[in-house]
Every structure is written in structure tokens, then in C-alpha cells.
Nucleic acid binder design. Structure first.
Length: 665
DNA sequence: CTGGGGAGGGGGCCC
DNA sequence: AGGGCCCCCTCCCCA
């Protein structure tokens, strides 16, 4: 369905003069298709994720878009994008499929045919457009509904369809993604959302269990979709059904629902967006917090931008819509009625139809190709030669950013400069890490032999970092470690931009953005982002307290709390160390800290456990009991314990025997 | 009010 | 890539 040939509503919303305001002079200077072409390019960029600077989370779906475009189209989104790169829309007000249609509309000015018959989804689009304050789309939907006789003016509302839960029952969108999830038998078959070849700025936070949301779940097989961005943040829970996604959308319009009950352990799957709220049900609600929602999530029942008005009470859907459309100032945006009139005018002016437009999305020869532009920009940022840059950077001494001109973002491994962090990140991703590693390995071909022969530690961990002398058992770990020395972290979070040295850390971080907590406690239903947290948590139920204070005998379920406890033992009133350790403890602590990457303070605390042992100089000479003690009582692995001990050169021989004795057969 | 313990959560990093 | 551990921060509860 074509709405505006010239996107007059967008021009109006952005404050640019519309068609009516144009003078003859301006007409003479105008390129008629400029706005359309511009939007076409923007939409092409969106579908490729190029320069997208905001992610919109709607239930399990992620949409990438451009802040400017959203802000120019929706007063509500405008109020959000100024504060956040991540928008979390309430999926009771707008479902993923409906938001996709709306996003397509924003970028194209066209609303796809929602479904055969169309009215139901059209009603949902209308409700969502009202929620998002997109007057042009509201007017369009109302017009269509009026034509089909489904719309009636009841306080400005849309009579036949309920908002909120009822709304979702009319939007067969994300449900289609639960292909692997059993569906209630009494539910009608789910139809895919309307086709439009523009839905591909989407990412999907897939289901937490088993059946990940198919990124093409919204797309019939015959429809062409760009490849999804493929961000799977799901984790499989070890605890079975409780970790599954709850298809809350499956609720029938009249089906009762318990809004605030904690999840049953045998409850059906919960959606990603609900995981946090379910987890929060087991915690004290934060003061004034939004239970379970993303901290930046908009209040689903607040129709205005934040700070505009107190939140609206949960009310009948029509009441909500009435207030969105009638009471809330739209600022520079078109009033709904005005937009409707504008729509009428546009339609009248539209006939006879203009020259046919290319079918959307049209990637024509003159289309700005994001990839090209990327490479173009990259190419333009060649800057200093890699060799030169490497010379300047490899020793961290000749670092002269100004000498790079505009290419201030330099890849440490290859020395190539880039004008922006985004381009540098893209470059770093593209690095052939294997090649880099082999290069580094070749440089370190003689790691320790020229340092007076290999020590025991060198044999155990032959791969040594050239930057910090840490050593590792395998090359992959060394390569991983070496990234910590890079000035640029290679794995940025696509949501907040924070950068990480390891991909796994980044994906784990992103799970926290999305509130995904795949690990559920069987006993209480508490959910966690990590298995390890669940393991720790389970000790609460089992009563197991494996960490014992060697000073007072206090037992703890979590090691960190033992460490915290030991600080209390070690600290005097002035905060300084209370225990009078022999010098050997501090010397050993220093070695421990160096070798194990612990802080010296922490190492001293660990070693303080052995103070009674170390106080005996003769015992100190006996490595075997010390190693045994260290391994058994300090929670160190034998490797680590051995590492500590082998630093005492006169004990090497005994350490070797210790390692041999403790090594698994 | 304060200190200590329990516990949730995020990041770093090694295996 | 995922698991596991360490470190840190933080909040809450309770004596």
C-alpha cells in the first residue's frame, strides 16, 4: 500500500516545509524525488545495519535503526533515543511483527498489507502507532479502517480491537517463531506477518531453550529475506522447562492472566523480555524500580515522553488510546486529524498516479551501497603505511596520534589507521588472527632458551607473552591473553558500544542487556545469567559451605565471602594488616601475585592461611607439605600451587617431585 | 547507625 | 565457544 509519494508527513514532522509551503522559486530548485531517494538509501542502510545507532528490543526481536529517522517519525521514540542506544518497547503494546511493519512504514512511507482481510492487524498497527505517536500512520490506519467500516469514533478510539493483551492476540508475529514449541491445540494457526522485503534490520534473541527463534520466523519461505544478523544470545538451561520461553502471546483475548505471580517451576517458557521480571519476582522490588524491565525500558503505560506527565494508570485500552491521541501534545509532530487531512490531500493530489516507482527495496545502480561506502571510507583512511604505523606503535613509546592525520584509530597488530572506531573495529574483526598469531609465534620462537634455560614453569607453560611475561599452556590462550594488551578491544557490544577483549565476554554482557537469564534454580525458580552463579546459589538450598576460615573456623557458601571475611581478619582498626606475617609470607605473596595474576594483598590473604605453617622455618624448607597444604586448603589447583612454590629456586627439585606426585596418572 | 554476612550481578581472564 | 574462577561493586538483612 502506498501512502505518500513524497513523504509529506515526514517533512512536516521534521519541520521542513511541506509541499504546500513551497514557493515557485523553491520548486524550480527542487529535485522532486530527493526525499524519496534519500529515504530509500536510509532504508537500504537500515536493512544492512549500516550506521544504525539504535537497537529496539520488542519481546524477542531486535530491530536496528537510525536514531534520526525514529526521532523524526515518532514523538515517543524521539524521547527515548536521545537517552539510549537501546530501546525496550513494551510488547503488550506493540508486538515484534507490528513493530516491523511500523518500522518499514517509517522508512518507506508505505504500510504493507497486514494480512488477508487486514483489519485485525490494521487495528493492531493503529494501536501501536498511537502508542508510538506516529500521527501519519494513525491517520492512515483509521482511514483504512473507516473504509472497511471497522472503525468508529469512540473517544477517538478503535472499537473492535482491544489494546494490550487483546492487541497481541491480533498480531500473529513472533508466535510463528516458536516452530519447535508445542502449541496449544485450541489456538488458531499462526499466520506470518505481511510481506515486505524490508524487515531485515532485525536481530533475534532466540528462545532460551531448544527452539531458537528462527530469524526468518516472520518470513514465509518463499519470501526473500536478507540474512539475519545472527545474534543468538540464548543459553540452554540445565533445569528444563522452567527455562523455556513463555509464549505469553498465546493467551487468548479472554484468557485470565496473573500479572504479578512468580513463575511456577513447571511454568511454560517465558519470553526473554519476561525473564528479568520473573527473576525480580523473587527479589525485593527496587525502590521505584520497574520490576523486571530493562532499566531503560519505557513505561509501557506511559504514553508521553519521560518527564512529560505522570504515568497513566492501567486503563481500558480505548482510554489509553484516547489519551495518546487527544491529550498528549505532539509537539512539532502532526496532529492526528491534521495528518489525516494531509493524507486526504495527498491522495487527491496523487491521481493520476505518477511514474511507477521501483519496487521496494530497490537497490538500483545509483543506490548508495553501504558496503561500498564503507570500503570507500576505509580506503580513504589509508593514512600512514602499516609499516610506519607499526614502527610507531609497537613499542608504545613513539605514540604520536597527531602524526596520523585523521586516522587516529590504529590497529595495534598491523598498525593501520582508521578515522573512526567503528571502522577500526570492523578491520580488527577482519584480521586473520591465525596469521597474526603465527607472526607473533615466530617472533617468540626462542622463548626461554636464551634466558638461561627453561625452568619448571617454562616447561609447564611454554607460551610466554612478549608484553608482560605471563605464560600459558597453549597458544590459543596466549593469543587470547595478548588481546588484553591491545589498545583497541576487538569485540564491541552492538547495543551499548562497550568493548571487550573476548567474544564470550561480550556475548555474556549482551545477555545482561536483554535480561536473558537461562539458568534457573529448580528449588526456588531464581534465574541467573551464568551457570556458575546458579552453582553458587544452589549452596543456599543445600546448606553446603565449603569455604572455611582458617582463623576462626567460620564457614561460607561462597569463596568471595570468605575472602571478604579474611579481609576483616587481616585488617586492623586503621585498615592496615593486623596479622604479623613473617617476611616469607610477603615474599611468597609477591611471587603469588606475580605468577597468578592476583593482587599482592589478595595473595597475602591466601597465604595467611598458612601462617601457622610458615612460622616454622623448618617447615618452610619442606616443600611437600607446603604444596600439599596449598593445594588442599587454599583452593588452588595443583598447577597453581606448584607455580607458587617453584618460584623459590632452592625448592625446585622438591616442587618437581610434588608435581609428579600430584599429577594424575 | 554500623559492621558483618549473604547474595546478585558485571567484567577480566584462563582453560 | 563455553565453562569456570577470580575480582569487584553493590544491595539487603540483621545483630
Amino acid at each position: 500500500m502506498r501512502v505518500h509519494r513524497d513523504l509529506g508527513w515526514l517533512a512536516e514532522a521534521t519541520g521542513r516545509p511541506g509541499r504546500r509551503a513551497r514557493s515557485g522559486m523553491l520548486d524550480a530548485m527542487e529535485v522532486p524525488s530527493h526525499s524519496r531517494q534519500l529515504l530509500l538509501q536510509l532504508n537500504t542502510q537500515r536493512t544492512k545495519g549500516f550506521l544504525c545507532d539504535v537497537i529496539i528490543v520488542v519481546q524477542n526481536a531486535l530491530f536496528r535503526a537510525h536514531k534520526n529517522i525514529l526521532a523524526a517519525s515518532s514523538a515517543y521514540l524521539k524521547s527515548l533515543v536521545v537517552h539510549d542506544n537501546l530501546l525496550n518497547l513494551d510488547h503488550e503494546m506493540v508486538s515484534p511483527g507490528i513493530f516491523r511493519l511500523i518500522l518499514d512504514f517509517i522508512y518507506t512511507g508505505r504500510l504493507a498489507e497486514c494480512e488477508p482481510g487486514g483489519e485485525q492487524s490494521l487495528g493492531a498497527v493503529l494501536a501501536a502507532a498511537s502508542y508510538l505517536q506516529i500521527p501519519g500512520l494513525v491517520a492512515l490506519c483509521k482511514k483504512k479502517l473507516k473504509r472497511s467500516g471497522k472503525y468508529c469514533h469512540l473517544r477517538g478510539g478503535y472499537a473492535p480491537y482491544k489494546l494490550g493483551r487483546g492487541l497481541r492476540a491480533t498480531t500473529p508475529v513472533i508466535q510463528a517463531c516458536y516452530s519447535g514449541t508445542p502449541r496449544p491445540v485450541d489456538l488458531p494457526p499462526v499466520e506470518p506477518a505481511a510481506p515486505l522485503n524490508t524487515q531485515c534490520g532485525e536481530l533475534y534473541a532466540s528462545a532460551a531453550q531448544g527452539a531458537p527463534l528462527h530469524p526468518h520466523g516472520l518470513c514465509p519461505p518463499e519470501r526473500h529475506c536478507s540474512p539475519p544478523c545472527g545474534l543468538d544470545l540464548s543459553k540452554k538451561s540445565p533445569t528444563g522447562p522452567s527455562a523455556q520461553l513463555l509464549p505469553t502471546d498465546r493467551l487468548l483475548p479472554g484468557e485470565p492472566r496473573e500479572p504479578s505471580l512468580p513463575p511456577r517451576h513447571d511454568s511454560p517458557p517465558v519470553s526473554a523480555g519476561l525473564l528479568a521480571s520473573h527473576a525480580a519476582a523473587y527479589k525485593d522490588s527496587p525502590p521505584g524500580g520497574e520490576p523486571g524491565g530493562h532499566p531503560h525500558a519505557p513505561d509501557p503505560f506511559r504514553s508521553t515522553p519521560p518527564c512529560a506527565e505522570p504515568p497513566l494508570p492501567r486503563a481500558d485500552g480505548r482510554e489509553l488510546m484516547y489519551r495518546w491521541m487527544k491529550h498528549e501534545p505532539l509537539g512539532p509532530y502532526l496532529d492526528e486529524g491534521e495528518a489525516e487531512k494531509e493524507l486526504e490531500r495527498e491522495e487527491k493530489a496523487e491521481s493520476p498516479p505518477a511514474a511507477p516507482q521501483p519496487r521496494y527495496p530497490s537497490v538500483e545502480s545509483n543506490d548508495l551501497e553501504p558496503d561500498n561506502s564503507t570500503s570507500e571510507e576505509t580506503g580513504s583512511s589509508e593514512g600512514p603505511s602499516p609499516g610506519d604505523a607499526l614502527d610507531r606503535y609497537c613499542n608504545h613509546l613513539g605514540y604520536e596520534p597527531e602524526s596520523l592525520g585523521d586516522n587516529l584509530y590504529v590497529c595495534i597488530p598491523c598498525g593501520k589507521g582508521f578515522p573512526s572506531s567503528e571502522q577500526l573495529n570492523a578491520h580488527v574483526e577482519a584480521h586473520n588472527e591465525e596469521e597474526l598469531y603465527h607472526k607473533a609465534a615466530a617472533e617468540q620462537a626462542v622463548p626461554f632458551l636464551d634466558k638461561g634455560g627453561p625452568g619448571l614453569g617454562d616447561i609447564l607453560r611454554p607460551y610466554r607473552c612478549s608484553s608482560c611475561d605471563k605464560s600459558y599452556k597453549d597458544p590459543a590462550t596466549l593469543r587470547q591473553h595478548e588481546k588484553t594488551h591491545w589498545l583497541t578491544r576487538p569485540y564491541p557490544c552492538t547495543i551499548c558500544g562497550k568493548k571487550f577483549t573476548q567474544r564470550g565476554t561480550m556475548t555474556r554482557h549482551m545477555r545482561s542487556h536483554l535480561g536473558l537469564k537461562p539458568f534457573a534454580c529448580d528449588a526456588c525458580g531464581m534465574r541467573f545469567t551464568r551457570q556458575y552463579r546458579l552453582t553458587e546459589h544452589m549452596r543456599i538450598h543445600s546448606g553446603e559451605k565449603p569455604y572455611e576460615c582458617q582463623v576462626c573456623g567460620g564457614k561460607f557458601a561462597q569463596q568471595r565471602n570468605l575472602i571478604s571475611h579474611m579481609k576483616m581478619h587481616a585488617a586492623g582498626p586503621d585498615g592496615k594488616a593486623k596479622l604479623d606475617f613473617p617476611d616469607s609470607v610477603y615474599a611468597m605473596a609477591r611471587l603469588t601475585a606475580d605468577q597468578l595474576g592476583l593482587k599482592q594483598e589478595k595473595a597475602a590473604e591466601l597465604l595467611s592461611h598458612t601462617s601457622h605453617f610458615l612460622s616454622d622455618p623448618k617447615a618452610m624448607e619442606s616443600l611437600y607439605p607446603l604444596a600439599k597444604f596449598t593445594a588442599e586448603h587454599l583452593g588452588l589447583s595443583q598447577d597453581k600451587a606448584a607455580e607458587v612454590l617453584v618460584q623459590a629456586p632452592h625448592l625446585h627439585a622438591e616442587a618437581a617431585r610434588t608435581i609428579e606426585r600430584y599429577s594424575p596418572p
